[in-house]
C-alpha cells in the first residue's frame, strides 16, 4: 500500500483537491481510503462518502493535532492494509502554522490557497517547508501576477518542492498532481519511521487543564515575551 500525507490550513481546499485527485487517478474507489485528522468537527466525511470513498475521521479534541496525528498514524496504516487499499491518504488540518504531520520517506503534500495573501507562504513554516509537493488552490480567481508572486514566495521557503496549481472545483491540475504521486513508495508498516519535524512542545500546567492567569499557576515548558519600555 502507498501512503500519502496531506496537510494545509483550514478551508484551503484539501478535501476538494483529494477528491479531484482520486477522480484523476482513474482507479477503482474501493482501492483507496482516507483518514481525516481534524480538531472538533468535520463534515468532509459526507463528501468522501458521496463519492464512495472509505473514510475514517479522528478528532484531536483538546490535544495538539500533530501529537494526535503521530500517535494514530500507525494504526491508520494497519487499518488501510486490513481493508486492502492500494493507496491510503491522510488529511490533516494544520491549525497553527507550525504543524507538520509529515513522515520521512513518505510523500508529503501541502495545500494552501491563493486567497490567503501573497506573504502567507513566508509565514507558514514546517507545514510548507517540509512538503515534497505544494498544491496551490483558488488560483482561478486571482490575477496571474498574484499567482506568480505567491509561487515565488513558496519557493523562498521551500526551494525543492514541486508547486502545482489545482482548481478544486473543475479539477484542472489534478492529473498533474496524480502523475507526481505515482512515485509514492509502498509500505507495510510505519514502525520506527520518523517525523520530519518535531511536534510542538506542550508540557505545561495549561495542558493539564489549568485556566487561571498568573505566574504562580504556570509550570512546565513556558516561554515568556520580553516587553521593552524604552
Amino acid at each position: 500500500m502507498k501512503l500519502i500525507t496531506f496537510a494545509g490550513p483550514p478551508s484551503s481546499g484539501k478535501t476538494s483537491v483529494i477528491l479531484k485527485l482520486i477522480e484523476a487517478m482513474a482507479i477503482d474507489v474501493n482501492t483507496i481510503g482516507v483518514v481525516k485528522f481534524d480538531c472538533l468537527t468535520s463534515f468532509d466525511n459526507l463528501r468522501y462518502a458521496e463519492k464512495g470513498v472509505r473514510v475514517e475521521t479522528g478528532f484531536s479534541g483538546k490535544l495538539c493535532p500533530d501529537h494526535f496525528f503521530v500517535s494514530n498514524i500507525e494504526a491508520a496504516v494497519e487499518w488501510g492494509l486490513k481493508c486492502g487499499f492500494g493507496t491510503l491518504i491522510s488529511e490533516s488540518a494544520g491549525l497553527c502554522n507550525r504543524c507538520s504531520p509529515y513522515i520521512q520517506g513518505i510523500l508529503a503534500v501541502c495545500v494552501i490557497d491563493n486567497l490567503s495573501g501573497v506573504n502567507t507562504p513566508r509565514k507558514i513554516g514546517p507545514m510548507l517547508k517540509m512538503a515534497d509537493i505544494v498544491v496551490v488552490t483558488k488560483g482561478d480567481i486571482v490575477s496571474q501576477a498574484e499567482r506568480e508572486v505567491f509561487a515565488f514566495n513558496i519557493r523562498q521557503v521551500n526551494t525543492a518542492a514541486r508547486i502545482i496549481f489545482v482548481n478544486g472545483i473543475t479539477g484542472q491540475g489534478a492529473s498533474l498532481l496524480a502523475r507526481h504521486l505515482q512515485g509514492a513508495r509502498e509500505l507495510t508498516s510505519l514502525r520506527d519511521m520518523k517525523l520530519r519535524f518535531t511536534t510542538p512542545a506542550a508540557v505545561c500546567s495549561y495542558c493539564t487543564g489549568e485556566m487561571r492567569i498568573g505566574a504562580e499557576y504556570q509550570m512546565g515548558t513556558m516561554k515568556r515575551m520580553e516587553f521593552k519600555t524604552e
Binding site: 491563493n114 486567497l115 495573501g117 501573497v118 488560483g139 482561478d140 480567481i141 486571482v142 490575477s143 496571474q144 498574484e146 499567482r147 509561487a151 514541486r162 508547486i163 502545482i164 496549481f165 498533474l176
Partner: peptide, 16 residues
C-alpha cells in the same frame, strides 16, 4: 511546470 502557461479569465480579481 507552472511557468509555461499564464492564464486570464473573466473570474479573476485583484485580492490585494
Amino acid at each position: 511546470e507552472g511557468k509555461l502557461v499564464a492564464q486570464l479569465s473573466q473570474n479573476m480579481n485583484f485580492v490585494m
